[in-house]
Design a protein around this nucleic acid. Structure first.
Length: 114
DNA sequence: AGCGTGACCGTAT
DNA sequence: TATACGGCCACGC
């Protein structure tokens, strides 16, 4: 089912280090998904924001999710600020804070399995 | 099967 | 920097 797609997405999101962010597009391309929209869809339906740091995923230009499902735009902003990621005018500086060094090998898959 | 919707993206103005 | 527009594709109705 497409649940496996969701788990793949969550697995990658859990690799993003504290204090860094990644983008919907980076996740989509890492998983070879046809469209980044799918990433947003599954993060929105994520029922475990406590174990999956979905707030570390931002748009390609650094802007945050307009309709962040857990506390709205402000909720995502606060979570990032708490981790030391500056947020100005609803966006982060990708040049300094983006991270996309995902590992897809079997070893990390086993470690990060949900 | 068609259609509207969306935690998107790139380009143009 | 900010809208606008078109393309994108999975989902739900």
């Amino acid at each position: 089912m497409s649940e496996s797609v969701a788990n793949s997405i969550y697995r990658l999101v859990r690799q993003v280090p504290t204090g860094r962010v990644t983008t919907y597009g980076a996740i989509a391309s890492a998983l070879k998904l046809p469209s980044p929209r799918q990433v947003g869809y599954w993060l929105h339906r994520n029922s475990r924001p406590d174990t999956i740091a979905c707030h570390r995923v931002v748009r390609a230009d650094g802007r945050l999710a307009k309709n962040f499902a857990f506390g709205g735009l402000g909720g995502q902003t606060n979570k990032l600020l708490a981790e030391g990621v500056p947020v100005k005018a609803g966006r982060v500086n990708l040049i300094d804070y983006v991270w996309a060094d995902f590992s897809l090998d079997a070893k990390s898959l086993k470690r990060d399995i949900i």
